[in-house]
Amino acid sequence: MDTVEVRMTNLFHQLGLDASEQGIANFIHAHHLPAEVHIVDAPFWSEAQRQFLDEMLKADARWAVLVDQLNESLHEPHRA
């Protein structure tokens, strides 16, 4: 049974990324995606990260909501 609380910081931990508030903001700022590129097709993921994201979305797991939020954030225009 998965008992990890579903939060963006824990999603970043699962992905092996800096899960601090600043780390998450920096990642999103540095990794803008064009509208036609889906989050799992982004070139900056490792294969393991890509598989994790894809599995979470396909399984409609409780992590899927956060993956969708991250996807939206990566597609938003960045402000200067």
Rank of each mutant, 00 (worst) to 15 (best):
Thr3Arg: 14
Leu66Val: 15
Asp41Glu: 10
Asp2Asn: 14
Met1Trp: 04
Phe27Ala: 02
Asp2Gly: 14
Val40Gln: 07
Asn10Leu: 07
Arg62Glu: 15
His32Ala: 10
Glu21Ile: 02
His13Phe: 00
Glu76Lys: 09
Ala61Leu: 12
Gly23Ser: 06
Ala80Tyr: 14
Leu57Gln: 10
Gly16Cys: 03
Leu70Glu: 06
Ala59Tyr: 13
Ile39Leu: 05
Ile39Cys: 06
Asp18Cys: 05
Gln69Tyr: 11
Arg7Ala: 11
Asp68Gln: 09
Gln51Trp: 06
Leu33Gly: 03
Phe52Lys: 10
Leu74Thr: 10
Ile28Ala: 01
Thr3Asn: 10
Ile28Arg: 03
Asp2Val: 10
Glu72Cys: 09
Lys58Gln: 07
Gly16Trp: 03
Pro34Thr: 05
Phe12Ala: 00
Leu15Asp: 00
Gln22Met: 14
Gly16His: 07
Ser73Ile: 02
Arg7Ser: 10
Gln69Gly: 14
Val40Trp: 06
Gly23Leu: 07
Gln22Arg: 08
Asp2Ser: 04
Gln69His: 13
Asn71Thr: 11
Val40Phe: 11
Val67Gln: 07
Ala59Phe: 06
Arg7Cys: 13
Ala64Thr: 01
Met8Leu: 15
Met8Cys: 08
Ala30Gly: 13
Asp60Ala: 11
Ile39Pro: 08
Thr9Trp: 09
Asn71Val: 03
Gln14Ile: 02
Glu55Arg: 08
Ser73Asn: 09
Asp2Ile: 06
Leu70Pro: 04
Arg7His: 15
Ala61His: 11
Gln14Leu: 12
Ala30Lys: 11
His75Arg: 02
His13Met: 03
Leu57Phe: 01
Met1Ile: 08
Leu57Tyr: 02
Ser20Thr: 01
Met8Asp: 03
Leu15Ile: 05
Glu21Arg: 04
His78Asp: 07
Leu57Arg: 00
Ser73Tyr: 09
His31Lys: 12
Arg79Lys: 12
Trp63Tyr: 03
Leu74Tyr: 02
Asp54Tyr: 04
Asp60Gly: 15
Met1Asn: 09
Ala42Leu: 11
Asp54Thr: 04
Phe27Trp: 08
Met56Ile: 01
Asn71Ile: 05
Gln51Met: 09
Phe52Gly: 07
Asn26Ser: 13
Ala35Pro: 13
Leu33Arg: 05
Asn26Val: 06
Arg79Ala: 13
Glu5Phe: 05
His75Gly: 04
His32Asn: 14
Leu17Val: 00
Ala42Asp: 15
Ser46Gly: 06
Met8Tyr: 04
Met8Ile: 03
Trp63Glu: 06
His75Val: 09
His13Gly: 08
Asn10Gln: 07
Ala59Met: 12
Glu21Pro: 11
Glu47Met: 09
